[in-house]
Amino acid sequence: MGLIGVQRRTKQEKRFSDEMGMFNAKVTYIQKTFASIPYKTLHKYRETYYGKVKDCSDCVISH
């Protein structure tokens, strides 16, 4: 068991895009942890209704 690890966590978030408007999406965060405390987000992505995986930079959290 090491002190540094990588952890994946999924949570519901409200998002906004121009095409769809406001919607709830499952956003997955990949975070670097030290002693099971997350300190850096390496990547975050979301899955669309059609099963495609998209980066979270194409939609704004609040508009």
Rank of each mutant, 00 (worst) to 15 (best):
G51V: 03
K14Q: 13
V27G: 03
D55L: 06
T41Y: 04
I30N: 01
K32F: 12
G21K: 01
Q12E: 14
G51W: 04
L42H: 00
Q31L: 11
T28K: 00
D58W: 12
T28E: 00
Y50C: 07
R46P: 02
K26F: 10
Q12N: 13
R8M: 05
E13M: 15
Y49K: 11
T33V: 14
D18I: 11
E13Q: 08
K32D: 09
I4W: 12
K32R: 12
V53I: 11
D55P: 04
I4K: 04
A35F: 15
N24P: 00
F34M: 07
K14T: 09
D55V: 03
R46D: 00
Y39E: 01
I37D: 07
R8Q: 12
R8A: 10
K40Q: 13
H63N: 10
G5I: 02
A35V: 13
Q31P: 00
T48P: 01
I4P: 04
A25G: 02
G51T: 00
P38L: 02
T10F: 06
T33C: 10
N24A: 08
Y29C: 05
E47I: 12
M1W: 11
T10D: 13
R8H: 10
F16N: 05
H43R: 13
I30K: 02
F34E: 02
C59W: 11
D58I: 15
K44M: 08
F16L: 04
R9W: 04
V6M: 07
T41H: 01
A35I: 12
G5K: 06
S36D: 12
